[in-house]
Amino acid sequence: MAEIVAVNHLSKQFNEVHAVNDLSFSVNEGDVYGFLGQNGAGKSTTIRMMLTLIRPTAGEIKFFGKELYANRNEILKKIGAIIERPDHYKYLSAYDNLSIFAKMSGIKVTRKLIMDQLDMVGLADRSNSKSKTFSQGMKQRLGIAIALIHNPSILILDEPTNGLDPQGIADMRNLIIKLKKEMGKTVIVSSHLLSEIELVANRMIIIHKGKKIAEGDVSEMLDPSNTVVLVETTDNTKATSLLSAMPGIHLTHTTDDRYIHISLDKNDIPQTVTQLTSAGVGILSLRPRHSLEEYFLSLTNNTTHVETFTNRTV
C-alpha cells in the first residue's frame, strides 16, 4: 500500500516544554493506524499539528506526498476529523450543523445528502433537534457524520471513545472497522488504551513524553511469544525460585508483592502450571497480559519496563 501520510522529525515546543520531540512515522493507504500514549504523551498535539491547528516548531508533515502547510486547503478537503470531544453548535439542529460543515468542506449540499448522512449515523429522526439536547453518544454520532460528510480519504479520530458508555465504545469500534473494510478509508485513531487500539488497528505507534517508543504492525507487536503472566501462588518465594530455574521463562518485574511477573511463550503456560503444582506450590490466580500491555502500563505507572519488549522497539 502507498504511503499516504509521512511525518518527519516533527517537534512542538510550548515555552520550555517539548510536547512533541523529533517524531517521525508514516501511515499507509488503508491502514487503521493506532496512536497510543498515556495522557499528556503528545498524541493530541501531534494530531492537531496534522490538522494545522497547531503550528510545528520543527519538522514536516506530508499527506499524499504533498507538504501540509503549502497545500493546506487541498489536503484538508480529503481529511475528516473528530478532535477529542464531538462539539457542535449547540443552538443549531443536527441538520443545520451538518449542513454548515458540509458547505465549509466545499461540497455541493443537498437535503438528500444531509438526511442520508444523518440516517447513516441513526439521527435522521432527530434532524431538527438542537444538538444541545443530544446525549454524548448522539453527539459523537453527529461528529462522525460531520467528519464523513465530504467523503474524505483519511479520518483522524483523536480519543473518539472519550466519554462514551460501553455500547458507544463498541459502536465506535465497529464503525472504525467498517470504515476500513467497507469504505476503504485510512483511519488514524488515538487512544490511551491499548485494548482499544489492539482491537481496531493494524499498525500503531506508541509515544511517550513526545517521543516515539515503538512503531510497527500490531500483529507483530502483539506476538504471543511475548506474553507476560502475573502469577499469584500460595508461596511466592518458592515459586520465584522454581520459575527462575525453568528454561524459556524470564522474571520481568520484582516490585510487586502479590504477583510474580514472568515472560514466556503463551503455549508454555500449561506446562509451567503443572510444574509449579507438582512442586507443591498452589496457584491462586494467573493473569496473562501481553508484554506490550505490560510495557505500556510500566510507562503509565512509571515503573521499569519489560526487557523483552525493548529489544523490539524501533
Binding site: 457542535h88 453548535y89 460543515f101 468542506s105
Partner: peptide, 14 residues
C-alpha cells in the same frame, strides 16, 4: 468555548 473552533479550522478555509 463551544469547541467548534477546532472543527472549523480543520475545514479547507483559510
Amino acid at each position: 468555548n463551544m469547541g467548534t473552533l477546532r472543527l472549523l479550522l480543520t475545514k479547507p478555509v483559510s
